[in-house]
Design a protein around this nucleic acid. Structure first.
Lengths: 168, 168
DNA sequence: AGTTTATGTCAGCCTTGTTGACTTTCCAAG
DNA sequence: CTTGGAAAGTCAACAAGGCTGACATAAACT
């Protein structure tokens, strides 16, 4: 019953049952724990946490981005971000240059030290993902990305797509 | 150079580039926020949070499970779980029956009230996932699940697979 | 009888999120 | 040139949900 896929009509819709959706939910939960496990392991012992990782990631991703941009991407309050950013700047991982056009803005850059940590964290996280990708092949990876994108809130999807292109 | 895909040999491996892996990481991050957004919305205002949702979910999923089992699935300390479980029991959402064979164990069940809340939360979360699944089709969903499963820690993958079957 | 297991609980700490209030700096429009 | 609003920073207080360590009880196992 329910041969893999590819009939003509409505695809049998067996993949939309309550049970299948539950499995998807659980898969998402367990996989996310794996997803964060490796960087968390590196961070513990340092004075940093997952929030610092996220800041480093997105500053690396959009060099010279402003605080406001970062707030929009991360979806936290400026007080919450500031606590994290403060320590990263004080510890010399992030540099905040006064904006050239608009001097109210701060353009954020990773220092050498910041880049080094970001690289370590990303390497760890990518290693797991690379192994998973390799294990399942490009076809499955494409499906993975499609489903994730379809699950995002529209605002976040826009943020996500903006990142894929270039741009600070 | 580097035409799309599908040569004979090793699939060109373009899907394993740093950039592709980074996109995957970001997709995971943004999608997870969407994944939790709807139940969180329901919970806020009640005295409960995401931790209560998880407990309700897995108690529903494995009726009569023990505290120890739940601890293993959730991967938190008993003190942390107890805080959550305590309120759920006191509020009459969860019933803890003394084990029949081993009286040290507590078998956990949802009450009517607990089931009702669990259903609301799951409905909200499933709605988003159903929409996403429907938008991308069964082929993509299969890939989605494959990648997630490949990303899990081995222990968690075992937990996950155990849930798929039956069993308390 | 003594040990181990399952559970519960007290106390205290940390990270990371929140709100609210207030300041400084600076751009831009009137 | 003044004034309103935007960008950023900061202080204080609080909440959720993790954590550790210590200790208590009941039941099972040896």
């Amino acid at each position: 019953m329910a041969e893999t896929a590819g009939q003509g009509g409505s695809e049998s819709l067996l993949f939309l049952t309550d049970e299948q959706l539950r499995k998807g939910i659980e898969a998402m939960y367990f996989a996310y724990r794996g997803f964060t496990a490796d960087p968390d392991r590196i961070l513990e012992g340092m004075d940093y946490g997952r929030a610092h990782h996220r800041a480093l990631h997105f500053i690396h991703r959009s060099r010279g981005t402003t605080v406001n941009n970062l707030l929009a991407v991360l979806g936290v309050t400026k007080q919450s971000l500031n606590r994290v950013l403060r320590t990263l700047i004080d510890d010399g991982l992030v540099e905040a240059r006064v904006g050239r056009r608009d001097k109210r803005e701060r353009n954020l850059y990773l220092t050498e030290k910041g880049s080094a940590l970001e690289r370590d964290l990303t390497d760890a996280q990518q290693a797991r993902m690379r192994a998973a990708y390799r294990a399942v092949g490009p076809q499955a990876v494409q499906g993975f990305r499609q489903v994730l994108e379809a699950m995002m809130d529209p605002d976040l999807r826009r943020q996500y797509q903006r990142l894929k292109e270039g741009g600070a």
